[in-house]
Amino acid sequence: MASAMAFTNEQLERYSRHIILSEVSIKGQKKLLAAKVLIIGAGGLGAPAALYLAAAGIGTIGVADADAVDLSNLQRQVIHTTQDLGKAKTLSAQETMLAINPEITVKPYQTFVSADNVMSLIDGYDFIIDGTDNFPAKFLINDACVLAQKPFSHAGIIRFKGQLMTYVPGSGPCYRCVFKEPPPPDAVPTCRQAGVIGAMGGVIGSLQAMEAIKYILGKGDLLNGWLLTYDALKMEFRKIKLPVNESCAVCGKRPSITRPLDYEQAVCDLK
């Protein structure tokens, strides 16, 4: 009997709250431990997502971010602390994640995501979480995931609002179906210009982690074909139906985008 139980007593205790759930149990926890999730952007969205995925026992978690921790991050990027100021975000994130769960593997990628590296970055991962803060990156990640046929969670936050949707290959629209192309730089406000309530990252980033976990477990309904919007001041969650766009440039019937594209960054957001 002992050989049939691949989990140590310590693991049974660590994941006990998962294993008791009929939707998880030992089979599901094994899936989580075998899964590989990539988080692009270790900031307002990526930070809480990373914390919960590490805690859940996702076996391999990639974290991609080019930046170092700065003071203004600490209001919402809860994976970094005051002692991490100046440290590479990927390393700061890795430290916290391994402190929560030393059993997992955290792969840091200290880099910007670009047309040159995005395909190899996402290769080998089962699910991707877009935690970036700019539209060129968001479209890049979308296109890469569509081209590589990988599921991913898209999200955005600003002021007291947030939203997210999930792309599942072959089952619903992609981000470009809904938002054809990036707006011109400075056409839409960024968090730096407009502000964002810190906990918004926690709400939406945790939902992103939840989508990843549900996908890996194969349980529950995902947000593929839906945009979930959250207005904190009105205290309103809404689910808006998203149709597939047959003329989508990357996932439609006659795609014109066959490789990743770099768009111009918003000038005032360049570091």
Partner: peptide
């Protein structure tokens, strides 16, 4: 299965796991 080496709720978890097999 022997669950004398763990405490609740891991006792139940361990029993459940053994049954799953």
């Amino acid at each position: 299965a022997d669950i004398t080496d763990v405490v609740c709720p891991v006792t139940f978890v361990k029993a459940k796991v053994a049954l799953e097999e």
